[in-house]
């Protein structure tokens, strides 16, 4: 008892500082996250309940509270706001599905093709990384040059070299702009799928392939019976990440088309950006952003629930 009393204060003090220490050194990160992410997000939800336009924005804290009016005007299907958002939503979903599919398939093909060691494999791996490592504005602007109607490489190859069409198509306006958008997004992001799948492949024990080989399984059989099932947990996360990136993509359409993107390629982030900064209707813009977040949350939670249930059953 007496010894405990003798040394009592010191451990107590040390315990206090030891308990406070992790919070102290975490504080800067916490403050930064709060200031730039959490607080603005809450402010954004608050903004979505205000009538914020070019007249009220100067004194936005006192802008009239309109409750769910902004959401109502987004949900009123015959309004032009709702029509525009719905169209952009459809474009974004289609874009995300196609981009994720393309990125995943290219990544899988490359990872499987480079799985077996050969001379020059390291060089190819580094080469395939380059599109992902390149600053996006450089690569998308290069694509913008390639897709120019009169001076671009794409039309030179299609029309002048191969003679596939007589008329030089436009790639940055109209229907074709959607195709351009998907191709550019896939070019830029597929290396990430390649990297992730490569890392996943390295964790598959080689004995599995050796056993399959003894059983006389061909390459397709090995792909569908070993590689893909073993990659399942990796692919689950990968597909989700790719989908969220594509759905949130602002950079590709903005850099490729500028503020006035063609409607065929106006992804939802750019759509909200345009309608917010062109009309200064921030209340409506915030309401659309909140709906976009809710949609992503529902998709993410639903997707994970389905995937996990299947894993539990399987």
């Amino acid at each position: 008892m007496s010894t405990a009393a003798d040394v009592g204060p010191r451990p107590a003090r040390r315990r206090w500082s030891a308990r406070a220490l992790p919070y102290l050194i975490l504080a800067p990160a916490l403050v930064a996250e709060l200031a730039v992410h959490i607080v603005p997000m809450l402010v954004g939800v608050f903004m979505s309940t205000l009538r914020l336009n070019q007249f009220s924005i100067r004194d936005w804290v006192n802008a009239p509270f309109v409750g769910l009016d902004n959401y109502v005007s987004v949900a009123t299907l015959d309004s032009s706001v709702a029509a525009g958002l719905l169209r952009s939503f459809g474009v974004t979903v289609l874009f995300s599905v196609l981009a994720v599919l393309g990125e995943f398939l290219l990544g899988l093909a490359a990872a499987v093709a480079l799985h077996r060691p050969f001379r020059g494999r390291a060089v190819l791996r580094t080469l395939f990384l380059v599109p992902f490592a390149l600053p996006m504005f450089s690569s998308v602007i290069t694509w913008m040059f390639m897709l120019q109607r009169d001076t671009g490489l794409v039309n030179t190859v299609l029309v002048d070299w191969l003679g596939l069409t007589d008329e030089r198509p436009f790639w940055l306006v109209g229907q074709n702009s959607f195709v351009s958008l998907v191709v550019v997004a896939v070019w830029r992001t597929w290396p990430f799928a390649f990297l992730t799948i490569t890392a996943g492949l390295q964790s598959i024990p080689t004995e599995l392939y050796e056993a399959a080989n003894v059983d006389g399984a061909g390459p397709w059989r090995r792909l569908f019976s070993i590689t893909l099932p073993m990659l399942r947990p990796v692919n689950t996360v990968l597909l989700l990440v790719l989908f969220l990136w594509s759905f949130n993509d602002f950079n590709t359409p903005y850099l490729l088309f500028g503020q006035a993107a063609p409607a065929e390629a106006g992804l939802i982030s750019l759509h909200i950006y345009q309608s917010s900064f062109v009309t200064w209707n921030f209340g409506l813009g915030s309401a659309m952003s909140v709906l976009m977040l809710l949609f992503l949350l529902v998709v993410t939670v639903g997707y994970l629930a389905v995937v996990n249930r299947r894993r539990d059953n399987g």
């Binding site: 992790p22 992410h37 607080v39 402010v43 954004g44 949130n248 602002f250 952003s289 909140v290």
Partner: peptide, 29 residues
């Protein structure tokens, strides 16, 4: 420490949110 897991998860979650959601309020702030 308490809140460790929450901190890690929420930090990761903010990465997945659409940037446009923060942009409008941050601009006003």
């Amino acid at each position: 420490f308490r809140g460790r897991g929450t901190f890690l998860t929420s930090a990761l979650a903010t990465q997945m949110f659409p940037g446009i959601l923060f942009l409008l309020p941050l601009f006003l702030i």
